[in-house]
Design a binder for these strands. Sequence first.
DNA 1: CTGTGTGCAAACATTTTGCAAGCAG
DNA 2: CTGCTTGCAAAATGTTTGCACACAG
Lengths: 152, 152
Amino acid sequence: MTSIVSLSYKELLATFKHILKQNKLKFTNQREIVLYTLYTNTQHFTSEDLYLLIKKEYPQLSIGIATVYRTLTLLEENDIVSSISLGVQGKKYEIANKPHHDHIICEICHTIVEFENKEIEELQDVIAKENGFKLTNHLMQLYGVCKVCQEK
Amino acid sequence: MTSIVSLSYKELLATFKHILKQNKLKFTNQREIVLYTLYTNTQHFTSEDLYLLIKKEYPQLSIGIATVYRTLTLLEENDIVSSISLGVQGKKYEIANKPHHDHIICEICHTIVEFENKEIEELQDVIAKENGFKLTNHLMQLYGVCKVCQEK
DNA sequence: CTGTGTGCAAACATTTTGCAAGCAG
DNA sequence: CTGCTTGCAAAATGTTTGCACACAG
């Protein structure tokens, strides 16, 4: 539930390198470009979205979809990115350098809007306590139709 | 978001038959057993869980996993069952004959506890409105460690 | 009878894995 | 050099679909 708040890319990169070193992993071109692409794009990516964008932006770079999957898993395990699950259609990833927030998803155009609500988070704590749970995380997604799609 | 509240199996079955008739679909043994198994088991099923349980409980019945998928989709479209998404690992289904509720999931033993909270639902409506969305549905899952697993 | 439902196997979509060659440290 | 990392293709997983036969209405 902790999150790295508003890191610059330089700081984020340093964090990543530190984690790699700690785990005796290597800093590679592919790993950096995955991180950098996530950092510079605010959208939410599926593994494939990200793979295709990287192929397009760096045609000279050799990268396979397996590496994207492996890197996203690594980044998620280390809380550098977080993911939201979208049912059978898969997962979307985003950089975790923002305060905790949840998502409203448009069922028509699949736009994702972020929001934050402290009151709900407090209520969730109360609910967990009432049920004897020690809360570690939560997932809240609202589904609806966005303004643009309502007007179509 | 509407739900059928606490139906007896007889009533549920009547509802199902009515929906089938309305859509010119047929009432089959396989469809009834899927419904009945979901009704009599309070647990949350993946498609495969349900398929295996039915195979075990009704060895004489001929049923394929495709039919389970097709029936669950049909039941969900008609709000007789509802599902929760569990990331890449798939979906779990339960009978929707309960008032709307959400879930707390134990990360250790995967127990699912249901809860209901009107206050949060109201806040969700407000948030959607603030973002220009017309809310159709929502998903809220809390993750934590249940009492039993905390004591282990 | 008619047309929907079924099981089966094949097709699909997404993600993971084994392997030989590449490259960071 | 050493051993982690890579791309590739194959495998694994979960779900959907085409088809010929079965069966509800």
